[in-house]
């Protein structure tokens, strides 16, 4: 079983998945997010992948099933609730139960003990949390690469080697910045940010700030409800429709971390982050916090991004 998962809404507690982090395929759907585009390509073209779990949380993911129609691989779309109240938690828990049944039926395999997997995810997220707390003393590139590496191996196989290899090097830097965005498939952008003397001291990325220290506290209640509560109640994604909560949390954190500026990285044609940006930018302007918006779709954008980051660094 090698299931490619897209998004932090796909809980690792149910079964082993490989987190999608990037792929180069020839598929190019116009006006469509490149990240979702590449996910579709990998599911269709990569023979080592035999299944896909993805959310319905934005317009790009919403229509993924239409593009995967020709594939006989396992497919499951999680309808991520557009809200995070108790009804949503109950409803999402039902879906997680159904997901488990669907996987077992397709693969003719009984999935193991969930509580064991909960412990493993908790442990991993706490380790990420411990590094998140010292972001100003480690290389952010090393940190994010280690997380991506970690997410690409099966949970039970992971010894957290990559994470444990991160060294506290106390790198020198000129300015402290805060990073906002969706899953950072292209980590070259980090190299460019760090190359300009900018230190990322905090973020709200789904693979970092949003999962660090995110744990299932107790599962005396229904275990699926506990996982659902964890996934829906942690730091929010813009697809959960509470922009004001996201912004107030982030702004608090960036003030606490003495961030001097914000870098907002989004995928071109990613509407949740595009709408969030329009509100975010106004809020940061009010607070006199400079922000750089990088909307990326391909590698050409990276050289343009480099110039923009340099110019931004000069303004700080």
């Amino acid at each position: 079983m090698k299931i490619l998962s897209m998004s932090g809404f796909v809980p690792e507690e149910i079964c082993d998945t490989v987190r999608f982090s990037g792929y180069t395929g020839e598929r190019n759907i116009t006006h469509f997010c490149g990240y979702a585009n590449d996910f579709i390509s990998q599911v269709m073209l990569d023979d080592s992948i035999d299944g896909a779990i993805f959310p319905r949380s934005c317009d790009s993911t919403r229509i993924i099933p239409s593009y995967l129609k020709g594939s006989s691989k396992f497919q499951y779309q999680l309808k991520v609730p557009a809200r995070s109240d108790d009804y949503a938690i109950e409803y999402f828990a039902m879906q997680l139960k159904q997901l488990r049944v669907a996987i077992e039926e397709y693969y003719h395999e009984e999935l193991g003990d969930i509580s064991n997997r909960i412990e493993m995810v908790n442990c991993r997220n706490e380790i990420i949390g411990s590094y998140y707390e010292k972001l100003d003393r480690i290389s952010y590139k090393d940190y994010i690469d280690a997380i991506h590496e970690e997410l690409s191996v099966a949970l039970h196989e992971s010894k957290h080697d990559e994470l444990n290899r991160i060294e506290v090097t106390n790198p020198t830097y000129k300015h402290r910045v805060y990073l906002i965005g969706s899953f950072l498939a292209n980590t070259d952008i980090i190299r460019k940010i760090e190359g300009c003397g900018l230190k990322i001291v905090g973020d709200n990325l789904p693979e970092s700030g949003r999962i660090q220290n995110s744990i299932v506290e107790s599962f005396d209640e229904d275990v699926y409800a506990a996982i659902s509560r964890k996934v829906l109640s942690r730091r929010l994604s813009p697809t959960q429709n509470n922009f004001s909560k996201i912004i107030s949390f982030d702004v608090n954190e960036m003030c606490k971390l003495h961030a001097e500026g914000v870098i907002f990285v989004s995928q071109k044609y990613c509407e949740p982050y595009d709408y969030l940006y329009s509100v975010y930018k106004k809020k940061l302007d009010e607070l006199h916090i400079p922000v750089l918006h990088l909307s990326l779709s391909n590698s050409e954008d990276l050289s343009k991004a480099k110039l923009m980051i340099e110019a931004f660094a000069d303004t700080l």
Binding site: P238, S244, E271, L276
Partner: peptide, 28 residues
């Protein structure tokens, strides 16, 4: 679509009034 809830979020910020998002699972 999922655009509309996101769009309504920016209106909620502008007008500072309650925002209700209704979530419809569809047929699956």
């Amino acid at each position: 679509c999922n655009t509309l809830p996101a769009w309504w979020n920016i209106l909620a910020e502008r007008y500072n009034v309650p925002l209700v998002i209704l979530d419809y699972p569809g047929e699956d």
